[in-house]
Amino acid sequence: MENRSYANVQTDQAKNICIGIENSGIPYSANFTDKELKLTYDSDHHESVDEILKKAQSGDYDEMLREIKAKREGDGYLILLPTVAHYLHTTEGALKRRPEEQQIRLCRLYVNFWFADTPTIQRELSKAICVNRETEQNMEKPKPTEQPDMEQSRAYITRETLHRQAEYIRQKQAIKDKQAAEKTERENETERNKRL
């Protein structure tokens, strides 16, 4: 980061703020406790970080989760459909014409990205809609008799998936390193005992 901005915030939402900044693709570093967040970030993203900080401090997220939980009939996530429609610049009615499982998936995705900035939420929801449209179109097309071209198939891997995989690999390597160190220590101990 060439141009840095700093923020020192008293908050119990530090982890969620970092998740929102990470999901928004903003370069940053942070130190936090359960009551305070010290943040360094790329100043080109000042407006996005301000938006994320304000959202995190508003208490709206917890209120939204309470409303979802309080809904008795159907899936509680569907109460977010008007908000999702707003972010997608479409109508609630247009989304209601889609299968209910897709509506629920969009609403859950919105909750997962709630702490991100507005452009990120719009991008992720639009991406999900496009993938759903492609899936629907593929289901409508007659299946070809020949083997499908493997080059045309695509894998969509999210940043979160990559981070999880990297963390898993790091943990596995740490276990291997620890086992190797323990084995070396045992061998050294055996060698010392032989000498005695």
Rank of each mutant, 00 (worst) to 15 (best):
T190C: 05
K178W: 08
A174I: 02
R97Q: 13
V9F: 00
T158G: 10
E160D: 11
A14W: 03
F32L: 06
H163A: 11
I121P: 01
K143D: 10
M1A: 06
D149E: 09
Q173L: 12
Q137N: 12
E124D: 05
Y6P: 01
A70E: 13
L80V: 06
Q147I: 15
E160R: 12
R105H: 10
E63N: 13
Y41N: 02
E100M: 09
C18I: 04
Q122W: 03
M1R: 03
L162G: 02
Q13M: 09
E182F: 10
A181Y: 08
P148F: 06
S24L: 02
T83E: 12
Y41R: 00
N112T: 03
T118V: 12
S153F: 15
T184D: 10
T91Y: 05
C130R: 14
I26Y: 01
S24H: 04
L37G: 00
E182S: 04
V84P: 03
M64E: 04
R108Y: 05
A70S: 14
Y77G: 02
I17Y: 02
D34I: 10
A94S: 10
V49I: 08
D12Q: 12
I79H: 04
H89F: 11
D177N: 14
A174G: 04
T33Y: 06
A56P: 02
H89W: 05
H45G: 00
N112Y: 05
I21V: 08
R123Y: 08
L125Q: 02
T161N: 03
S153K: 11
D42L: 05
K96A: 07
Y87G: 01
Y28W: 09
K38E: 09
S5L: 06
H86L: 14
G25D: 04
Q137L: 15
E189K: 14
L80C: 06
K183F: 13
R105I: 00
Q137E: 15
Q147M: 14
Y168I: 05
A180T: 09
Q10I: 09
P119F: 07
E134L: 15
